[in-house]
Simulated assay, not measured.
Amino acid sequence: MHFKRRIFTGLMRKTILLLLVALPLLGAAAHKYYFSVTQADYDAKDHALKMVTRVFYDDLQKVFQERYDKSIKVDASYDQKKLDGYIERYFNQKFIVKINGKERRLNYIGHKDEMDYVVCFIEVTDVQNPKSISIENTLLMDLFQDQKNVVHLNTGTTKKSFLLTRDNDKAVLNFSE
């Protein structure tokens, strides 16, 4: 009898320990993370800063429905010209690029849909002799408190990655000629 109680107590301890370890992990797996990723490459030959931004489609849809129109769908069923208009408008408000300290106009090229996210293509043209590139990225930060935006900047000779948050929403890369 004493032996059975020890086995039972040992099993109970292991079960409780397993639950204590597993429950937080299950909660973390169910937690939604809010982030976007931007790859910004300076092309010296074309004198352009070419950028590709990936944003989860459901997060983008939610922010568009909050800001513009509740009927917006960020998928292939929605009028793609209208959707491009919303994306361009939103990027112009939330994504600011400065070259050598001067704000530059974004040229929105378009988007494509991938599995879970929308891939947006933008560029800044006529970039001559850049000494610094600054990207302020506040995409989705007005809706999601925990939004994080990753920016990878590549000038050909210099590569740097930034994690942008509400408290630090600007990536600045200074480089020599």
Rank of each mutant, 00 (worst) to 15 (best):
N107F: 12
Y108V: 00
Y108W: 02
I109P: 05
H111C: 02
H111A: 08
K112Y: 12
D113S: 13
D113P: 09
D113G: 15
E114S: 10
E114C: 01
E114M: 14
M115Y: 14
Y117W: 10
V118P: 07
V119K: 08
V119D: 06
F121C: 09
F121M: 10
I122P: 01
E123I: 01
E123G: 02
E123N: 06
V124K: 01
V124I: 03
T125V: 14
D126C: 12
D126I: 07
D126P: 10
D126Q: 13
Q128R: 15
Q128W: 14
N129I: 05
N129E: 15
P130T: 05
P130A: 09
P130M: 08
K131D: 10
K131L: 12
S132L: 04
I133T: 05
I135N: 02
I135W: 00
E136R: 00
E136F: 01
N137Q: 07
N137P: 02
N137M: 02
T138V: 01
L139D: 01
L139I: 09
M141E: 12
M141I: 10
M141T: 12
D142N: 15
L143M: 13
L143A: 07
F144N: 04
Q145V: 13
D146H: 04
D146G: 10
D146E: 13
N149G: 06
N149Q: 04
V150Y: 13
V150S: 09
V151D: 00
V151A: 02
V151S: 00
V151E: 00
V151R: 00
H152D: 07
H152E: 11
N154C: 03
N154W: 03
N154S: 09
T155N: 09
T155E: 03
T155C: 10
G156F: 08
T157G: 08
T158C: 04
K160N: 01
K160H: 02
S161I: 10
S161V: 11
S161P: 11
S161N: 11
S161R: 13
F162M: 07
L163W: 03
L163A: 09
L163F: 05
R166H: 06
R166Y: 09
D167K: 11
D167G: 15
N168I: 02
N168R: 06
N168F: 06
D169K: 15
